[in-house]
Design a protein around this nucleic acid. Sequence first.
DNA 1: CCGATGACTCACG
DNA 2: CCGTGAGCCATCG
Length: 99
Amino acid sequence: MRAIPAGRVATYGGVAAVAGLPRRARLVGRALRGCPADVPWHRVVASPGRIAFPPGSEDYEEQLRRLQAEGVACLGGRIDMRRFGWHGADLDALLWGPD
DNA sequence: CCGATGACTCACG
DNA sequence: CCGTGAGCCATCG
């Protein structure tokens, strides 16, 4: 999660896959609940580029604020994944990095 | 032990 | 775009 750069977003399923847990998107959402403060939870959105919280809820607004603060546009409740989507590297690349 | 419940996703109509 | 249904599986009551 912390590997997701500011200004980009990843999907629940994507994070799960990178973590080596394919098809476990729900688990990522569960893990995000009450996660440490230094975890950029707001950079994780649902598959189509939509904030997963119920629109209008306090959590929804909070995430929207944080994303906009990083320059991520959310028009019509949608985030353009082709522009802001983070196509993360595989776990090895994340751990060992390109030097 | 068991059914219900999610910060999910994908396929289909 | 919207609903349905099927996977998913850790938690909860």
